[in-house]
Design a protein around this nucleic acid. Structure first.
Lengths: 105, 105
DNA sequence: ACAATAAGTCAAAAAAATATGACTACCCAC
DNA sequence: GTGGGTAGTCATATTTTTTTGACTTATTGT
């Protein structure tokens, strides 16, 4: 309960949580887009026309909580919020690549 | 439809399918155990006391279909079936390690 | 002042993943 | 020929994840 990670599901494997997080819907696609440029909520919704607000909001929140994305409030003229890859997020890139490689063997 | 992979969900990222597969319940734990020794259905059920037949059966089938596990019928005295890691399955090991590493940063 | 955009939240519904418990079929030992 | 082990399947529940659509609050453009 006081374990500070997401649930008390007694994770048997250390990678399990991260794996589940990344496999969640829209996560991989969001990650992919974040690789190209910082993300903004509404823009993201337009880039993922099949997706819906709620799911995107949740995905962003979870990725942020996992410290893979960093949420920044841009205090410039069109005051807005940006999500960009953290170092930890970037460290995931080679892992994705390996998975992709393995996926099409 | 004729794409031979699991669904027609128009995967946007090549790694998505594999990711989703691996994140499925019991998968990581099964994988972990397969690393130690070949798996047998009922033994596995005993090793994962929280798990149930159906889910284990499905997990094994999916891992086999993804060619991460190989199913072998052992035609020896206690006639039985074994699931063991394929080469592709073994190739996943370093990826799991990387994920684990990243998970506890 | 009014409309549009940005970034969401909320309750409820629908869909997908997992779990339960009953049942098969096959071998093997006694 | 009965009891126990192996490897499952099946229909049905339950749980979790994802979607829908309505609503919110603040900022900005005209």
């Amino acid at each position: 309960m006081t374990t500070h990670n997401q649930e008390n599901t007694e994770e048997a494997c250390p990678a399990e949580g991260l794996l589940k997080l990344l496999a969640g819907k829209w996560k991989a696609q969001i990650f992919r887009l974040a690789l190209e440029h910082p993300l903004r909520f509404n823009a993201l919704l337009r880039q993922l026309p099949e997706a819906n607000k709620q799911s995107i909001a949740l995905a962003l929140k979870e990725l942020e909580e996992a410290e893979l994305l960093v949420k920044t409030t841009i205090k410039q003229k069109p005051l807005h919020i940006e999500y960009s890859l953290s170092e930890k997020g970037l460290a995931l890139v080679p892992i994705f690549r390996n998975l992709e490689q393995l996926a099409n063997i």
